[in-house]
Computed example of a mutant assay.
Amino acid sequence: MNLSLGFSPCPNDTFIFDALVNGAIDTSGLQFDTKLEDVETLNQWAVQGKLDITKLSFAAGLKVSDTYELLNSGSALGRGCGPLLIAREAVPLEKVKDLKIAIPGAFTTANLLFSIAFPEAGNKQVMLFSDIEQAVLSGKADAGVIIHENRFTYQQKGLVKLIDLGEFWETKTGQPIPLGGIFIRKDIPAEVRAKVDQLIHQSLQHAYTQYPTLSPYVKSHAQEMDENVMRQHIDLYVNEYSLDLGTKGKEAVEKLKEMAAQQG
């Protein structure tokens, strides 16, 4: 059986899926047609039901729950790993509502967390996550919500943190931050869905047996990222919740669902 599979080229995703898509584990006859795209592209594709299996921001996953269900393996949750709101210089938080904010996608969990923290901030500009730092530096945006490896690079560029939106979430809810998960179409047979979930778990287990060595697959998709930044990325976003959401992970996702509903 051939299944379409989408995930991002970021090191946390390629680390998880490397063994699965490159033949390092037995997939029991399942074959995967992989599409590597920015998560906001994957979020938009999910609205169309384009892929069988896909990485999604949890905020997007909530919107397509009639078509897709969340798998237990492959998720990005944790503590101290949330998006950051950054600017060229310090700005009082009460003035954030008046700023032009660059966001990494309307359907991203980062945008949802920002909206929960600053419900009155309506002047948003959607752009590719990797363009946000430069947009803030150039003055195209007053501030920006950054994700992924930009957490490790913004200070080198002279930018300052206004608020850690993950820390805001953790303080408000006591829950780990649900950033993204792996979703599968509900019209795929239940036994296949279960097998895919198991294979993602096995793929990550295999990756951990090689770590901290980085495979050519991970490095080839990380653009010009320094290897230490790749490892920081993996260490931050890949953890026990990636192997299995478990009760605490599922509770965090439910809390996000509850707070998203309050946003309307």
Rank of each mutant, 00 (worst) to 15 (best):
I86D: 01
E69N: 02
K250D: 11
Y208Q: 13
A102Y: 13
M230K: 02
E170W: 02
L128M: 11
S8N: 04
E40S: 04
I53Q: 02
I200V: 15
R88C: 06
G166K: 05
D18A: 05
C10K: 04
Q223V: 12
L36S: 02
Y154C: 13
A102H: 09
L70Y: 02
S242M: 08
V136H: 03
N72I: 04
F17G: 04
Y237L: 11
Q210E: 13
R193Q: 11
G82K: 03
V253G: 07
V160I: 14
C10F: 13
D244L: 12
N123G: 06
F58A: 04
M225D: 11
S242W: 03
L51G: 01
L256F: 04
G144Q: 06
I101N: 07
I234Q: 05
V145N: 03
R185D: 13
N111D: 14
A261R: 10
G180R: 00
G166S: 11
L214A: 05
K97P: 09
T108F: 14
F17N: 02
N111P: 10
V21N: 09
F15E: 08
P176V: 10
L162R: 07
Y237A: 05
A135Y: 09
A260H: 05
K140H: 15
I116E: 08
F114V: 10
E191L: 15
Q48N: 08
V229P: 03
N72Q: 08
L93N: 13
L56S: 04
S65G: 07
L70G: 03
Q210K: 12
